[in-house]
Design a binder for these strands. Structure first.
Lengths: 245, 245
DNA sequence: CGGGTCGTTGACTCTCATCAACCCTCGTGG
DNA sequence: CCACGAGGGTTGATGAGAGTCAACGACCCG
């Protein structure tokens, strides 16, 4: 029943957008036992092959999912922002099939998988909201496959900028001056399947065409409609208005 | 309690591999009301933007998930074989964010989303098995991102051949003479992010090196270990031994 | 002041796309 | 029984987009 802002509130408000919850659901989520843990940039939150018994909820900072080929080429599979559960399915899969890594210094609330399981049992609406959450994650993966497989470099880069902007905005983390884009060009390359130098050239083109404005790690989007068009970005895959029937 | 082979049995045996079920769970799944529907090659099973009220379980034949850019380039996002639920999350997402299309002529059992929802309520173990199923789907999407983003053409093509072989074998659909590979070279290109002619040349190389043997739409793998190595294929992401705790 | 990380730029290379032609196979219909 | 057309596979020639290599510059932090 506590009214003061709670460290898990961002997660709560995200789930509220996924499925209708009632007071007792909210309460159960707020009462989940957790311990806070800080991760330094590049630190692994989960490593491929790990046995998973805990989930990590990103409270602050940014993280990526990542996987490498035997030859050592790295591919970033997705981005996570505060409020995201970074391995919700953890409890159900025997071992992690990819790495999760801190992008910036970040703060995570570590929750025992069993505790989450218990909430599932007692609160079917919460289970549904989490289920929807992972369905949306999967939809994002699909869009990334399309992005990397079939779009030219300019659109690819623009697309991840658009997605990131939209998700931040939705989470209330973007301001009108643009937003912090925490990736290096090398990482952006790993996210788009491009080389770092080609990312550099592509960003320059986007800047030159007035589609983005860069200033260190800040990024601004002067003309959203235009960028969106170049990126072939349609937010439908984010299922923003999602609310289970 | 029926003992005769049931049309939904393939799905059942797949779920058994996902989470432990008890007799009443199995019964509930077998008693799901469905109607059979035949889809011709290229026919859409689900179209991007569709409102979803039913799920389709593939009983026979092959299907793909697919999405296109505004410029019309197509990307195949995943393959489905008999026993796969093709849109299990349907009931929970407002609208489809991609297309599902019959690859060969195929037979689907169409089940009302509400009926599945009801089974969820009454059979938490089934809900868990389905949840695991979609988590594994997501793991496959992630591997595809890596495949398309970071592997050279030869490995890319080899990788989808490996995945397909492994999944067919697991479902008991491959025989020692190899298996039916139902995609045209153009479709294989759409699955790997390559052009059809480059797929053709790549397949020729794989053949020349003795890694695969082709004969019309049949394919054989004389040396699995070797192909697996070229493909950088590690079946971990398929979570074959998966069995929820 | 020095070292490290990241960004920038140019020169060169290579993988893969594109375009175009031709082939084969199979099903259809006259 | 043959003509035809369509879909798919094969091949060569050419070119574009992106990768690689290498050097240098900018900035941050200790």
């Amino acid at each position: 029943m506590s009214d003061f802002p709670h460290i898990l509130d961002r997660m709560l408000s995200k789930f509220e957008r996924r499925a209708p919850l009632v007071a007792s659901d909210r309460e159960a989520l707020r009462e989940l036992p957790f311990r806070l843990r800080t991760f330094e940039p590049h630190q692994y939150i989960v490593r491929e092959g790990d046995r998973l018994t805990e989930c990590c909820l990103l409270v602050d900072g940014y993280a990526i999912r990542q996987k490498t080929t035997a030859q050592g080429a790295r591919q970033i599979l997705g981005l996570h922002i505060p409020g995201d559960f970074v391995d919700l399915g953890a409890s159900l899969l025997r071992q992690a099939d990819h790495n999760i890594q801190a992008l910036t210094r970040c703060e995570g609330a570590v929750i025992a998988a069993d505790a989450i399981d218990a909430v599932h049992q007692a609160h079917p609406r919460v289970a549904k909201a989490m289920w929807v959450d992972t369905l949306i994650d999967a939809a994002i993966f699909r869009e990334w496959i399309l992005n990397i497989g079939r779009r030219p470099a300019k659109a690819r880069v623009a697309h991840v900028i658009c997605e990131f902007a939209k998700r931040l905005e939705l989470a209330g983390l973007a301001n009108e001056n643009g937003y912090e884009f925490p990736m290096t060009q090398e990482q952006l390359g790993d996210a788009t399947g491009l080389s770092p130098v080609h990312v550099n050239r592509t960003l320059k083109i986007l800047s030159a065409e007035g589609l983005i404005e860069r200033n260190r790690r800040m990024i601004q989007i002067p003309d959203w409609q235009q960028l969106r068009k170049i990126a072939d970005f349609s937010e439908m895959y984010l299922h923003l208005d999602q609310m289970a029937a």
